[in-house]
Design a protein around this nucleic acid. Sequence first.
DNA 1: TAAGATTGATGTTTCAATCTTT
DNA 2: AAAGATTGAAACATCAATCTTA
Lengths: 153, 153
Amino acid sequence: MVEIVPDEATVMAWIALNRAQRLAFSAIDAEVKAAGFPPLAWYDALLELRRAKNLALRPVELERRLLFAQHNVSRLIDRLEGAKLVERRPCASDGRGQDIVILPAGIDLLTRMWPVYRAGIQRHFGACLSTETAARLAGILQPITAGGREGTR
Amino acid sequence: MVEIVPDEATVMAWIALNRAQRLAFSAIDAEVKAAGFPPLAWYDALLELRRAKNLALRPVELERRLLFAQHNVSRLIDRLEGAKLVERRPCASDGRGQDIVILPAGIDLLTRMWPVYRAGIQRHFGACLSTETAARLAGILQPITAGGREGTR
DNA sequence: TAAGATTGATGTTTCAATCTTT
DNA sequence: AAAGATTGAAACATCAATCTTA
């Protein structure tokens, strides 16, 4: 088997991808926390629930959309439930499963967090890109994100 | 103060950046672990040390290069030292500081890890991009990574 | 047996406080 | 007081095993 090796430009792009994501994410996350809100992972999970039909998803679906491993989703739900933002309900169609339902307090939190999150996205990410460049960036990353890989994380 | 809001394309690019990084990183990290190696964070730290003059850096320098918070660097060094890959030495020029020196075993680990890491980069990232696209991606992300921000993480 | 979900034990990251030297 | 570095306690993530239903 011939081993195929990334070229110099690919390695540099890989490093840039990691640096950019970590730098922007940690800056935005810090701003959101400084405003007294929970971590962005909570936002992402609640957002998926609010978008879902009937404001509910099963853990396995949440796992696929968040790219989280199963046990991580399980414990994230524990925390969201502890904060009274979601509720676990038995699943009608599948006895093994559960429906995770977002509660009004969860919807309210989403609404209050978005302006802060949005401002962070603009300040730490959007400010560095024109609209056209942002669109091009999303296009370039498309094939990577499309890879419907197993959610090891 | 007028609040400036990211446009639709920027928000989509932000989501794509996060998805792509997490997906590719977790896939590569899993491959590296499956081959019996420690996490990629160890690789990054050892690589910075090997590149440094005299094969040594102070924790504060490592912090800046890795975009890690100070206490995280401190504990990463604990683990590397526990694995006999680096050594802490008193710093001659500044009594508060230390020099973290990479040991031969650390250099050896870097050498053995790189082929596996490299193959992962190609399989989970490079395979989705042409060389030209990779170069363009790095260029787009440049202004974000250049932001010499505080290493909150 | 396999899929959905959880749990105990363990490792890592984070927060806030601490210690030392400048 | 400020900078470099570490530490205890708490939050979170990960691994391997477990439990339940399909």
